[in-house]
């Protein structure tokens, strides 16, 4: 019996209880989520004081200016701190256990909460270099996640990713 079936029998919950919570973009964060669908990580850059805000907000959280532009991030980051979740999470995440939540420092400055994927928990190190990957959570909802830098490697893998994205009806991230 699958974990889900066991839990459904034990707790009387339904498939609906296992549906992943999706981010609901606001007017000022919508470009970020549009960007992830295209395989780009966009950050909000204040034209007045130069602050890069993440999460993006209606106005600059440093100087309150509304004059901002979206810039594409390098997709590079370092791991600041992490947790390996293994028990007691909400039902939509039970089937993902164990999964890693982390504080990630983007090369551009901001800190982000996300998941580390493609890395055994015992291989995690504070300060290790990471690169962004895009994971489709639901049709048209793509989350940026992170994996050890250089883990991707070959052109073949990029091509495989592109085909995978296409099959899911998503735009492939730019190759290279």
């Amino acid at each position: 019996m699958s974990l889900r079936d066991t839990l459904k029998e034990k707790l009387g919950c339904t498939d609906e209880d296992f549906v992943k919570p999706l981010p609901h973009p606001t007017k000022w964060s919508a470009p970020f989520w549009e960007g992830t669908k295209q395989g780009t990580l966009l950050l909000k850059h204040c034209r007045n004081c130069g602050t890069i805000d993440h999460p993006p907000y209606l106005y600059c959280t440093n100087c309150s200016s509304e004059e901002a532009e979206w810039v594409e991030a390098s997709g590079k980051a370092t791991l600041y701190a992490y947790a390996v979740n293994s028990y007691g999470v909400p039902l939509p995440f039970v089937e993902d256990l164990p999964y890693v939540t982390a504080l990630i420092d983007l090369a551009e400055g901001p800190r982000m909460i996300s998941n580390i994927v493609g890395c055994a928990p015992e291989e995690l190190r504070n300060g290790m270099e990471l690169e962004v990957v895009f994971e489709e959570l639901a049709p048209n909802v793509v989350l940026p996640k992170w994996r050890p830098a250089g883990a991707e490697g070959s052109d073949m893998e990029r091509e495989y990713q592109r085909v995978l994205y296409e099959r899911k009806g998503m735009t492939a991230p730019p190759s290279g």
Binding site: P21, L22, H24, P55, V89, P90, F93, T101, I113
Partner: peptide, 10 residues
């Protein structure tokens, strides 16, 4: 709800 919950934060 937008930036943490979708990643399984608690």
């Amino acid at each position: 709800l937008e930036w943490e919950v979708p990643y399984g934060m608690t």
